[in-house]
Computed example of a mutant assay.
Amino acid sequence: MNNLMSDGFGLMLLGMGFVFTFLCLLIVSTTYMSKLINRYFPEAAPVAKKPMAAPTAGASSASASATDPKIAAAITAAIHQHRNR
């Protein structure tokens, strides 16, 4: 019985050692690959969007940003129907 326990303990340590070694190797290789990719293929700088042009003198700012009246009516009807359930 003593021999079986020592063999089991040895296999457990051997298996855990392999898993620990593999995980350490995986962390090191992932870190290295990440640094390699960032060095040779840097992320492009974000392009600043141009500000939107001001509405023309004939259009009001409220009507320029408002949604279509048909869509607003459909949304209102859907909310009303949902609340009445």
Rank of each mutant, 00 (worst) to 15 (best):
Arg85Tyr: 02
Asn3Ser: 06
Ala59Phe: 11
Lys70Val: 11
Ser65Ile: 13
His82Thr: 00
Phe18Met: 13
Met5Phe: 03
Thr31Leu: 12
Ala73Gly: 04
Met16Ile: 12
Leu4Arg: 14
Gly8Lys: 06
Lys50Tyr: 03
Gln81Tyr: 00
Ser61Met: 10
Ala62Tyr: 05
Ala53Gly: 09
Thr30Met: 10
Phe41Met: 07
Lys70Pro: 01
Ser63Met: 10
Thr21Ser: 15
Met52Pro: 08
Ser63Phe: 08
Leu25Gly: 13
Met33Gln: 04
Ala59Cys: 10
Ala64Arg: 14
Tyr32Arg: 06
Ala57Asp: 09
Ala64Asp: 06
His82Cys: 00
Pro51Thr: 04
Pro42Tyr: 10
Asn2Phe: 07
Glu43Phe: 05
His80Trp: 00
Val28His: 03
Ala59Gly: 01
Cys24Tyr: 06
Asn2Val: 07
Pro69His: 05
Met33Gly: 03
Asp7Lys: 12
Pro42Phe: 10
Ser34Asn: 12
Asn38Thr: 08
Arg85Gln: 05
Ile75Asp: 05
Asp7Phe: 06
Arg39Gly: 01
Thr56Asn: 14
Ser34Gly: 12
Ser29His: 06
Leu36Gly: 02
Ser29Ala: 09
His82Phe: 01
Ile37Thr: 08
Ala74Leu: 15
Asn3Trp: 04
Ser6Lys: 13
Leu26Lys: 11
Pro46Ala: 15
Ala44Phe: 01
Leu14Ser: 14
Ser6Phe: 05
Ala54Leu: 12
Ala77Met: 04
Val19Pro: 01
Ser29Thr: 09
Pro51Trp: 04
Gly17Val: 06
Gln81Phe: 00
Ser61Tyr: 06
Asp68Phe: 11
Asp68Pro: 09
Met12Ala: 15
Lys70Thr: 09
Ala57Arg: 05
Pro51Met: 06
Leu36Lys: 12
Ala72Pro: 02
Ile75Tyr: 04
Ser34Cys: 05
Phe41Thr: 03
Gln81Gly: 01
Leu14Pro: 01
Cys24Trp: 07
Ile79Gln: 03
Leu25Phe: 13
Ala64Gly: 00
Gly10Ser: 13
Ala57Phe: 08
Val47Lys: 13
Thr76Cys: 00
Ala62Thr: 08
Ala54Glu: 14
Arg39His: 09
Tyr32Phe: 13
Phe41Glu: 02
Leu23Thr: 06
Ala78Pro: 00
Met12Tyr: 15
Met1Tyr: 12
Ala53Gln: 12
Gly8Leu: 14
Ile27Lys: 12
Tyr40Leu: 15
Thr56His: 09
Ala59Leu: 14
Met16Arg: 03
Leu26Gly: 08
Ala59Asp: 10
Ser61Arg: 10
Asn84His: 01
Asn3Ile: 02
Gly17His: 06
Met12Pro: 01
Thr21Val: 13
Met5Thr: 04
Ala66Tyr: 04
Ile27His: 06
